[in-house]
């Protein structure tokens, strides 16, 4: 393993995926989901790659491949330098711990009757991390890190506002010390002033924990502040992948320009 490869949190190479015919008919009917065509990119430890693209460009399919909900037809995924697609059993589970995800609508994935403490400590229990005492301590420390008071530990997710719920989802994802956090439109449904708060929180958490982000967004709003690099997806392909400053100041692909134009 080269020195450079050692510092990668995620490496995706030549990933291909096609929805099966039987499914595409249905999916095309509700607004076309592209497969994935020859997707390759890397994220270095502690850095952020944002993948931006309009709806139907293939972002969600890509996320499904990386979290293991969909099996690609070909290609490789290395998470924390381990071969994810060819791992099985305990090895696969160990890799799964290294990558956690926060979705747009965490309300639907968090049980409304669980307390915040139960929600956050659940991944610790699933991955059998430490004992009850150390899990409780870890839970308190991540709750603190996402800026919620300890009094929230006994609340139920149904009692939380949208912004608070996303904080809980982030704390839950961080509890098992992942190397990579997938942020799938985590701010999209939030109000502007809350969106900005959470974007700043994510930036702080990255500085504090050194976790890498794969950040997915359908527009470029706020993306510059969070990213090291930005990739643009269109029709199941990555059509441009550039350093953040270069992408914003010197966009090359038509799709990138169109996304930039939309911003204003």
């Amino acid at each position: 393993m080269s020195v450079e490869a050692a510092a990668l949190a995620l490496r995706v190479s030549n990933l291909n995926f096609q929805y099966k015919k039987r499914l595409t008919g249905k999916i095309a009917g509700i607004g076309a989901a592209a497969g994935l065509a020859d997707i390759s990119f890397e994220i270095r430890a502690g850095e952020t790659l944002s993948i931006v693209g309009k709806s139907g460009s293939g972002k969600s399919t890509l996320v499904k491949c990386i979290v293991g909900l969909v099996r690609p037809d070909s290609g490789d995924i290395f998470i924390a330098r381990m071969d994810y697609l060819h791992a099985a059993g305990p090895a696969r589970k160990a890799i799964r711990r290294k990558v956690q995800a926060v979705f747009q609508d965490s309300a639907s994935s968090l049980s409304p009757r669980m307390t915040v403490e139960e929600i956050i400590s659940e991944p610790l229990a699933i991955h059998r991390v430490g004992n009850a005492q150390s899990r409780r301590e870890r839970t308190r420390s991540v709750v603190d890190a996402v800026g919620l008071p300890y009094s929230f530990l006994t609340r139920r997710s149904a009692e939380l506002s949208g912004g608070q719920r996303q904080r809980v989802a982030i704390a839950r994802a961080l509890s098992v010390e992942p190397e990579l956090l997938i942020l799938d439109e985590p701010l999209t449904a939030l109000d502007l002033s809350i969106k900005a708060q959470l974007s700043n929180l994510l930036a702080e958490l990255q500085e504090q924990f050194g976790v890498a982000y794969l950040h997915i967004s359908h527009d470029l709003f706020g993306v510059a502040a969070l990213s090291d690099r930005v990739a643009v997806m269109h029709g199941g392909r990555i059509v441009e992948n550039a350093d953040r400053t270069a992408l914003f100041t010197n966009p090359v692909h038509l799709e990138t320009r169109s996304l930039l134009a939309e911003m204003l």
């Binding site: 708060q197 930036a203 990213s227 914003f248």
Partner: peptide, 26 residues
């Protein structure tokens, strides 16, 4: 609110880690 909105589209700052303008609390 307008500061939040504008900082989200001001893309010229070249330093990563620049924070967006936000409003504390809710």
């Amino acid at each position: 609110l307008m500061r939040c909105a504008k900082s989200g589209i001001s893309v010229h700052e070249d330093r990563k880690g620049a924070r967006l303008a936000s409003i504390p609390g809710a």
